[in-house]
Amino acid sequence: MANLKELSKHAERLTGGHRLCAGCGAGAVARQTLIAAGDTPVVVVSATGCLEVSTSVFPYTSWKTPFFHSAFENSAATCSGIEAAYKSLKKQGKIKDEEIRFIAFGGDGGTYDIGLQSLSGAMERGHRMLYVCYNNEAYMNTGIQRSSATPKGASASTSPVGKVIQGKEQPKKDLTAIMVAHNIPYVAQSTIGNWNDYVTKVQKALNTDGPTFINVMTPCRLGWGCKPEDSMEMVRLAVDTCIWPVYEVVDGVYKMTMKPRGGEKKPVTEFFKHQTRFKHLLKPENAELLASIQADVDAKWNKILALCGEK
């Protein structure tokens, strides 16, 4: 487990002065990832999205470590090219024997959807890199459109609540399982509100010789409709309600790394009631829909418990 006194000894590599909203989880993801890396040299790339546009607005950049962005759907391919350049130049003796780690960021839009092919290719090719999906469950940068990470029932601007449809009709895609199916050495889910879980996983991933993937649930206070100060607590509630199981898969072996606080699974409404994207689900006329969502969460939780050998 990580220790804040130790982590705080290294120089900060993400400055303030970026333009993310107050209370945005993405800024915390970038910071905690870099903090986890300690003083290891890291090169960072990002898909187009909130994190990228807000942290690098010419002539200002928050990155004190090498940072590159080119487009939306290619964060993983971009990281591949840099890792390949590193291997080539190192092999030829054109750069010294320094260990550099490569980190790619993408939101759920850039990862689950438009960048999935690029991610799959990079993972299959085996580049030594950490891909971090900061997952806030919708396309927040363009104005809260649904993504394949948006959960069933959530209201988004392209899956709105109307007279005949109550938010997104499809359940979210299990991208983490898809990454596990790539047989890469390290895959994990975490949340940005559980710093020790997340930082520990980043450290494990960076120490893994091969492609690694972390899906980190990250609040978007605008898209979720919650209070900025509640950002971190919000994603902890996702763990308490088992909506977002927190686990890791090391060489194919699943392990639960966090359980609901107090040992008791809370009803999904404990997560929903703080967020305007779910408020329609709490109305009496949507009781049936809510029950079906709870049933889905229960089934998936049982499945993950079984995978983790907890059942």
């Binding site: 590193y86 291997k87 080539s88 690029s118 290719g121």
Partner: peptide
């Protein structure tokens, strides 16, 4: 050749990886 050959999964990724390799400092 000492080249790292990246057998990407599409031309979009081909150009993306060529671009980033060039940014990294490689002749790509």
């Amino acid at each position: 050749v000492p080249t790292e050959f990246v057998a990407v999964e599409s031309e979009h990724s081909a150009m993306s990886a060529t671009i980033s390799a060039s940014v990294a400092g490689a002749r790509a």
